[in-house]
Amino acid sequence: MNDIIIKNITRIVIPFAQAYGIFIILNGHISPGGGFAGGAIIGTSLILYTLVFGREKGKKKFSHKMSEIAESGGIMIFVLIGVIGIIMAGSFLANQSAGFPQGELGNILSGGFIPILMIAIGIKVASTMISLFNILIDEEKV
């Protein structure tokens, strides 16, 4: 697509969409939303970039290798925190009994490891969305 209006509008819209997604992820434990919804919003902004500027430029920004690493890395952080719960308190994803600092109710830094889990899920969902789209458009036309 070589339309100057679409390109400039996309350049303006993408930072706002990504900031909104990051806001939803970081406030996941104290307000509606969370890792899945925020990650889907960030993934949609990356898909918009690929749609407007073409597959080659999209590959340069977020390659398949990078999306593989982000996908496996997000779920590895999740499992690692769960295993820390097993070691410290005897059950998967044990939070308060494993000694994570709880913080004050309503703050961003509260709820033990829940914000870290939300960030991990957000990374995983965002890279899953973009790699689903890339695999679909890389297929040969039937």
């Binding site: 939803i24 509606p32 939303g33 899945f36 919804a37 889907a40 919003i41 949609t44 969305m129």
Partner: peptide
């Protein structure tokens, strides 16, 4: 939020 992002977007 999830319905608007997933259902209408992705």
């Amino acid at each position: 939020i999830t319905e608007a992002a997933i259902g209408a977007g992705v």
